[in-house]
């Protein structure tokens, strides 16, 4: 899979396969937390209130940047499980065409039973994150986004942000 950025479904399928080996939900969460640990930390300077996603019980910072028709994301959270969820969302969506991001159904969240395992308040937090991601993807050129100006270019280069291939 040389160029996966055009294929959200492929990335979702990879994740579903990775999670399929776990029967005990605790193992699934252990793996999710592990995935989260590999997410690059958002520099403290970027952990600003203006990037906080409202509606999450934990803190979630999310920043997007568009280059031509594609959008890259950086995000972080102060809780381990949310970091894992963010890592998965970014792996599927970061670097994808804006239109594809907006269209994405993200069925993998149901397939790996993440959505159903989160209480409705927590699922609302997840929904808020997805809404913010899609909102950023929907901004024209993103020139108006305050996040755009604040984001150092190097941190959002596709090379840095492209998701790791599943081993």
């Amino acid at each position: 899979m040389k160029e996966a950025s055009g294929d959200i479904a492929l990335r979702e399928a990879e994740i579903i396969e990775e999670f399929s080996i776990f029967e005990d939900p605790m193992d699934r969460y252990a793996y999710l937390i592990d995935v989260g640990k590999k997410l690059p930390e958002l520099p403290l300077a970027l952990q600003r209130d203006e990037y906080l996603v409202p509606g999450c019980q934990s803190k979630v910072w999310l920043i997007g940047r568009r280059k031509e028709d594609r959008v890259w994301f950086q995000a972080d959270s102060n809780t381990a499980i949310t970091r894992g969820i963010i890592a998965l969302l970014l792996r599927v969506l970061s670097g994808q065409p804006a239109a594809a991001i907006q269209r994405a159904k993200l069925g993998f969240l149901d397939a790996i039973e993440l959505r159903s395992h989160l209480s409705s308040q927590r699922a609302n937090g997840l929904a808020s994150m997805i809404l913010r991601i899609k909102g950023i993807a929907g901004l024209d050129g993103l020139e108006t986004a305050s996040s755009d100006a604040a984001l150092p270019d190097s941190s959002v280069e596709p090379a840095n942000q492209s998701p790791k291939q599943a081993s």
Partner: peptide, 14 residues
């Protein structure tokens, strides 16, 4: 070193 939210989710799983 652990967030209460994470504890809550993992207790809920059990």
């Amino acid at each position: 070193g652990v967030h209460a939210f994470d504890i809550g989710v993992l207790l809920d799983q059990q």
